[in-house]
Simulated assay, not measured.
Amino acid sequence: MVNTRSTKYDENFYNKDDRRTKSDERRTNDDDRRTVRWQEDERKSDGKRTKTEDRRTNDDDKRTVRRLNVVSGRIDGVEHQIDQVGIKVNRIEKVERKLEDTRRQVQKEILERIEGLGHQLHRTSITDLEHGPTSLGTPLQHSSLMHTERSVHKMLKPPTYDGQSSWSMYRRQFEAAAKANGWTPQEMATSLVISLRGQALEILQSIPEE
């Protein structure tokens, strides 16, 4: 005779195991579904982060390009200014060379004029010594008579000359004053030496004494 109680116990035991197994399977399935959903959410989140980072990278690249364009434009502007300054410097150097050439030419002309007057003064002094007394008396008496005659009239003082203005114009003024004052060549040379200033006076210092 079969033990009914034992059979029911076994059935209940197996039924409980089945229920546990099914419950475990449901939990496992739930965990799997949660895992799948989490993975999908992570993939979506990663995709969004990647897109956001890509947009940020693109924005940074665009800003970098704009900054580079601005810097490049400024560099071009500076290079243009440097070129303009170089052109101006070249022009200034050309003007300075022309001024230097003109100054040397004027100095040469003044030197030649002064040397000519110096030679004329030297020849005049030698001629006076060689001829000795004249119809007006000795050279000293002749000079005294001319000085007495000129003292009656007002003496005209010639302007000074520094080598910056035109020599030909100054020469006209000087010769006019010399003629009005009745100067001898020696007096003209002396007055010219006294009237020199600046560069003209420096040129006079370079003339060797005879």
Rank of each mutant, 00 (worst) to 15 (best):
G118V: 12
R97D: 13
V78F: 07
K44L: 08
N181F: 00
S45T: 09
I194E: 11
N69L: 06
K94L: 13
S23N: 15
E11L: 15
D32Y: 13
V65D: 05
T57L: 01
M155S: 09
L196C: 02
L192I: 02
F13D: 14
T21E: 10
I75C: 04
E93L: 05
K88H: 05
W167H: 05
L196A: 02
D76T: 06
D46C: 10
K154C: 07
Y9D: 11
D61L: 01
R74A: 09
Y9T: 14
N181V: 02
L111E: 10
M188G: 06
G47M: 08
M155P: 05
L121Q: 09
L145A: 14
T148D: 15
G198D: 11
S45K: 12
H131F: 10
T21Q: 11
K88N: 07
A180F: 01
F13Y: 15
E40W: 06
D32C: 04
E25D: 10
Q141K: 11
T57Y: 00
S165V: 15
T184Y: 03
E53W: 04
V193P: 01
S195W: 01
K62T: 04
N12I: 11
L111S: 11
Q205C: 05
R20G: 03
L68A: 08
R55L: 00
R91S: 09
V89N: 10
M146S: 15
T138E: 05
N3E: 13
R123I: 08
V70Y: 03
G86N: 05
Q141H: 12
V89L: 08
S168Q: 11
R172C: 06
H131V: 15
M1G: 13
A177N: 02
R34F: 03
H142I: 09
S72K: 12
R55T: 01
R103E: 08
T7R: 15
S144T: 13
T50R: 14
N15L: 10
S6K: 15
R172M: 12
